[in-house]
Amino acid sequence: MSSWRADPAAPAEAVLPLVDARWLQAHRDAVVVLQVDDDATPYHAGHLPGSLPLSTYDDLHERVRRGPVSRQGFERLMSALGVGVDDHVVLCSAGSPSHAAYAFWVMRLYGHRRLSLLDGGLPAWTAAGGELEDAPVVVAAADYRTPGRDPSVIVGRDELLTRYVGAPDPVLILDCRTEAEYEGHVQHQLDVVAERHRVPGHIPGSRNLPSGELLEGRAFAPLERLRTLFADRGLTAGSDVVVYCRVADRSSLLWFALAELLQHPRVRHYVGGWAEYGSLVDVPVELH
């Protein structure tokens, strides 16, 4: 559904997907800043003046069933944060940038157009001389409405299995866990190997691009470097890409780099990740 994508013919004022701390200092009053981490403890220790907290696991995932926050939940969340559908939102993290990238992806999923990610996160802001505050931020609630999910940025397991797994070029599945996880040499510490409730390995035919390779410290590597990394995994202009990791956080970095920074037109996020795929019965799995 192309109507969901950022309009390629958008005016020059179209927002940059990645901004640095100096840009943010210059545009602070024109944007809404959301600080996203695993939870909001880092936010309450000191945050960018006027910014608001988002907690990945409390706010951006469903509470009972598994998956990204529902449409109603997302609307409630944005409304409570006072975010309007046309607001320019800048996302940043104090810790791993994957949290901000996941929030970015969730907001794109629900069609929010004006979005940026602060390169290097909160540490980059303070390194550039930006101040922090710990005063509570009070906002007036808004009435946020989204038309629903954009299916072009997400793919579920059924479509993954029928359309992508085992499909020839131009399908390209990228696994962005570590090499050891991809090859099945290690299990996550939460997995109990003996029970085989989740097996090691990867989706057959997927290529491994560990998310850490996209970063230099907490900032994204230069575009040329990113292009090379994806090209080395077989990306061409016509590639129909699916990215996944374990639980949709690291893969958000890959989705962001490919869809937003490199502007690749077909990148879908398999949010079930290996946590789901490795637990499915009777699906093809590849080791090493």
Binding site: D39, T41, H44
Partner: peptide, 17 residues
């Protein structure tokens, strides 16, 4: 959140996970 931040630190952790 402030109490939890202290609790995480006592567990030697930076994040909830």
């Amino acid at each position: 959140y402030r109490l939890l931040a202290k609790l995480y630190r006592r567990l030697g952790a930076e994040t909830r996970t």
